[in-house]
């Protein structure tokens, strides 16, 4: 029975592969067509990307809101939105636009690392403050870099590949302004699966180790989440590069960590090509959780500060 099923699935896989190929071909053709057409008919995003490579920024002043920029200069921003970007030109423009609408005084910091497709220029055009790094900094390291230069009293972390409306993001900012230190996405990982994902398990387990089982699988690993400036100070900017460590510190030091709204990021995440080999990211995220355990072990005792309930260990000799 199981063999039968497997056979079916594999055949379906073959189909999807085929379909993907067809799609790729179709998109290629479309691109060819576009190139042939006149410039006026190209989509605005692509147009911007191409133009900025040739002309200076000043000449395109009409397409972007300069008044907003002036405001940023006049007043220190309240909200800093930090967006690490690595080749996400399909979405980055809209992401930045939405981010800027969260609060009247918002600065958007795009940390472009290793970008080769012009997403950094698109972000700049959309009104973001762009930090450029030629090399990829590493998973989640962009968050740390962005947080270092952020000036706002609320730091909101989102991803460049996922367009979230400003309306969806505002609750995070409001939660921080109402006194929460860390506002998390109420997302605990995919639920309807029979076998739990290893990363999801690690998140659940870390919360359990920290005596916060009520947070279930929520973690600072997932975007979006927001921090207050004082929380950032307590956690330490350098720990933002390994979110589980930051999460562990926040809980261990007794910061107010709260679930905010539910955004199903699992569904919104861009589908990446599934490799047959083990996902290397799984390894990194799992390792990050082990790093969190190490931080706990180093900063508390070897039992994570938990009771030994009157164990007479010396009796065993």
């Amino acid at each position: 029975m199981s063999r039968l099923k497997r056979g079916k699935r594999s055949s379906r896989n073959g189909q999807t592969k085929l379909r993907r190929k067809q799609k790729q071909r179709a998109s290629q053709q479309r691109r060819m067509k576009r190139a042939g057409r006149s410039r006026s008919s190209t989509s605005s995003v692509r147009y911007a990307a191409k133009k900025s490579s040739k002309r200076s920024l000043l000449s395109t002043a009409g397409t972007y809101n300069s008044s907003h920029k002036r405001k940023d200069h006049q007043r220190t921003p309240v909200v800093s939105v930090i967006i690490p970007v690595l080749n996400e030109r399909k979405t980055i423009h809209r992401v930045v636009q939405e981010a800027r609408r969260i609060h009247p005084y918002t600065e958007v910091i795009v940390v472009s690392n290793g970008t080769t497709d012009g997403s950094d220029r698109l972000a700049e055009r959309a009104g973001a403050n762009v930090l450029r790094y030629k090399q990829a900094l590493g998973h989640d390291v962009g968050r740390k870099v962005g947080a270092e230069v952020a000036r706002g009293s609320v730091l909101l972390f989102i991803d460049g590949d996922m367009v979230l409306a400003a309306k969806q993001l505002r609750p995070f900012v409001q939660a921080i302004q109402n006194g929460t230190d860390v506002a998390l996405n109420q997302y605990s990982g995919p639920q309807q699966k029979r076998d739990v994902h290893p990363v999801v398990l690690a998140k659940y387990a870390l919360n359990a180790l920290l005596q916060h089982s009520e947070l279930r699988g929520m973690s600072m690993t997932a975007v979006p989440h927001a921090l207050s400036r004082s929380a950032l100070h307590t956690i330490g900017v350098e720990h933002l590069a390994t979110p589980p460590v930051a999460h562990a510190i926040a809980l261990q030091k007794g910061l107010k960590v709260k679930a905010c709204t539910y955004i199903p990021v699992g569904k919104l995440n861009t589908r990446r090509a599934r490799s047959t080999a083990a996902d290397p990211l799984k390894l990194v995220v799992n390792n990050d959780h082990m790093q969190a355990v190490r931080w706990l072990l180093e900063n508390t005792d070897h039992r994570g500060g938990l009771t030994d309930l009157n164990r007479q260990r010396q009796q065993v000799r």
Partner: peptide
């Protein structure tokens, strides 16, 4: 978990050094 750390220290620390590499490979 402390026992696991003491046993696999090198192996676990090695993963951190390939972070950048992994991020780059994932998005390209």
């Amino acid at each position: 978990l402390e026992a696991v750390w003491n046993w696999k220290r090198e192996e676990l620390n090695a993963v951190q050094s390939v972070r950048a590499d992994i991020a780059w490979r994932r998005n390209t």
